[in-house]
Simulated assay, not measured.
Amino acid sequence: MSKLKAGIIGAGQIAETVHIANYQKYPEEVEVTAIVDTIPEKARAIAEKYNIPYYFSSAKKMFEALDLDIASICTPNKFHYENVMLALKNNCNVFCEKPPGIKAKEALEMLNLSKEKNKVLAYNFHHRHSTDVEYMKKSMDSGQLGDIYYGRIKALRRRGIPGWGVFTNKELQGGGPLIDLGVHMLDAALYLAGFPKIKSVSAFSYTKIGNVKNKGTLGEWNPEKFQVEDFLTGYIKFENGSVWNLETSFALNIKEKNTIMNVELFGTEGGMNLADMEIYTEANGELTDIKKAALAAEDKQEKSVRDFINVCKGDKNALITNAEEGYEIQRLVEALYTSAETGKEIEL
């Protein structure tokens, strides 16, 4: 197969450190051909820095000028939908930063168009590419936990409101920690459990810290412009009868100063703690804890990009968060926000 030509839409940090950096690790397979940003000087600077042949001020201009195989979408969440749709209409395989978009109907339209065009549409939920998740997935698929009936999902920061970007702008971002952090652990948990069918959700959100304070571990922000939740908690009920509890925060007065990203699942035969790499079960009537030795650290982002490249080259076994899974995650996020806003349980 000839070298894949990639265009990057959005010239921010994630484009530079994840997409461009990792595509360029595989020069025999991928050429980063173009970069787009609505600020032309920014696009030109990135193009010059990474020896990218072309830069444009709009994705439309890029697609009019070039025939590309891959488009990476690295814009604020609000603009994922329009750029994914444009890339698919121009017959590109698409690798979009999480989340799929702002609304579930957007994710569904992107899913349907990817099928119509017979193109790969993947989302960068890179936590499922960790060696920890890989180990736990094998353990769960072997039946070590039995039937899952309860789960705890945490994506928590004590005082980790990003002081850069648009993370506190609800219009551009769609929300706060749920749509930024929580989605990663939701994807990991759903992937581990085999994406069970969701029945309903109930959620509660709070803005108690970000709108009054202005400094944390990730920089300073303007509390007058803080428009998103800084904490959300909720319950997710599944058709199989299981229930999961979700907690996610940018700012919450917990003990831990470091970010907590964890999934705990509990079944009829055992339980697991992803962060601690432990399985709790029994053998011959005796309680048994199985702790996996620390695995060699791997770059989750590189593995995510590498698997997307492989899928584009025809490897059906490569691991991606595909368009169908992205849609399910977007439906879940939208339902959690709707429940928190209305105070009602939302049926899916």
Rank of each mutant, 00 (worst) to 15 (best):
Ser249Met: 06
Val201Arg: 09
Val212Cys: 00
Lys257Trp: 02
Asn93Gln: 05
Thr288Ala: 12
Asp289Leu: 10
Lys49Cys: 06
Ile161Lys: 02
Phe250Met: 03
Ala294His: 08
Ile346Ala: 07
Ala11Tyr: 11
Arg152Gly: 00
Trp164His: 02
Arg152Gln: 07
Glu229Asn: 15
Asp187Met: 00
Ala104Gly: 13
Ala251Lys: 05
His127Ser: 00
Lys237Phe: 06
Leu287Arg: 15
Arg158His: 11
Leu66Thr: 04
Glu347Met: 09
Ile236Val: 11
Ala297Leu: 04
Asn51Trp: 13
Leu156Asp: 12
Lys115Tyr: 09
Val84Ser: 03
Val133Gly: 01
Glu116Ser: 04
Ile346Gly: 10
Asp180Ile: 15
Lys257Leu: 11
Gln24Glu: 14
Glu247Ser: 14
Leu68Gln: 05
Asn169Met: 01
Lys225Met: 12
Gln144Val: 14
Asn317Met: 07
Ile73Ser: 02
Ala65Asn: 02
Tyr206Arg: 13
Val228His: 07
Lys119Ala: 02
Asn83Val: 01
Tyr191Phe: 14
Glu324His: 15
Gly285Cys: 09
Lys170Gly: 03
Val228Gly: 12
Asp180Arg: 15
Lys292Trp: 06
Ala318Cys: 11
Leu190Ile: 10
Lys117Val: 11
Val166Thr: 11
Asn262Ile: 10
Ala188Met: 14
Gly271Ala: 13
Ala11Glu: 04
Val18Arg: 14
Ile209Gly: 01
Val18Pro: 01
Glu298Met: 09
Thr281Phe: 00
Gly216Asn: 08
Asn22Asp: 07
Leu88Val: 03
Ala87Met: 10
Ser304Asp: 05
Tyr23Met: 03
Val94Glu: 06
Ile14Tyr: 13
Lys170Asn: 11
Lys170Phe: 08
Val333Met: 10
Glu134Met: 04
Met277Cys: 09
Val311Gly: 02
Ser58Pro: 11
Tyr23Val: 00
His80Trp: 08
Glu282Val: 06
